[in-house]
């Protein structure tokens, strides 16, 4: 029943060279990232796949919390739309968060993140939903008037076409004026992934370390 070939790469890491070619990661970084993937994907069910519960557990260190954003990030990572993340989806998505990834990829990903209904634009109601969710999550209390005022000012600046929604072009202009809005799209950890998970060398198929 079993594959006795021990030289075979683990599930999901059959071809690290291809993933390295198609992402910003080197082969060694792909292999180190696999160590992180193994850790997250074995937290609840050790099946070599990350389900939503495991993703949430890794993000919040608890599985009790409902989060609009964790769901949204998971759904964007899940490009095969089957409710689970395989290593390829995980690596391709995290590649966008690498400090060396193109800024346009980060702009595009963040736009998709905030375009909750995936209509090709961010509407006011979605911004309000996300602001309310963030405040609830952090235990901050702001009156509805204050929230409306924050959103008014944001739309005054971002919605340059004055149609009540923020399209991709307006989003791009906004984040280029305010680069701090993309701060969470860059993970410095990814630059040091091989030193964070040095054990990858024991399974490495390449000699580029």
């Amino acid at each position: 029943c079993c594959d006795a070939d021990s030289s075979k790469q683990p599930r999901g890491l059959e071809n690290p060279q291809v993933l390295a070619t198609e992402t910003v990661f080197s082969v060694s970084e792909i292999e180190a990232l696999y160590e992180l993937f193994k850790k997250i994907s074995s937290a609840v069910i050790d099946d070599g796949l990350i389900n939503k519960e495991e993703f949430q557990l890794a993000l919040f260190k608890t599985n009790k919390k409902e989060s609009l954003f964790a769901d949204r990030v998971f759904d964007l990572f899940d490009t095969k739309h089957n409710g689970i993340l395989d290593f390829e989806e995980f690596a391709r998505a995290l590649s966008v968060f690498h400090p060396n990834a193109p800024i346009d990829d980060k702009i595009q990903f963040s736009f998709q993140l905030y375009d909750l209904k995936q209509q090709g634009f961010i509407e006011r109601q979605e911004v309000k939903q996300m602001v309310v969710a963030t405040l609830a999550e952090s235990g901050m209390n702001l009156s509805d008037d204050v929230i409306e005022s924050i959103i008014d000012k944001t739309f005054e600046e971002a919605d340059t076409k004055h149609d009540g929604k923020i399209d991709k072009e307006e989003w791009r202009n906004l984040v280029l004026r305010h680069p701090s809005l993309l701060k969470n799209m860059t993970l410095q950890y990814l630059k040091d992934i091989t030193t964070t998970f040095p054990s990858f060398v024991f399974h490495s198929q390449v000699d580029d370390t």
Binding site: F60, K61, F97, M130, I150, L181, L187
Partner: peptide, 25 residues
């Protein structure tokens, strides 16, 4: 002043959007 804050700046502070937690024990 919270009203001078950009709504997206506030949103980007959400824990669910800060993926560095994936790397921490």
């Amino acid at each position: 002043q919270p009203t001078s804050m950009n709504a997206f700046k506030l949103i980007s502070m959400s824990k669910g959007l800060n993926l560095e937690n994936l790397f921490e024990d």
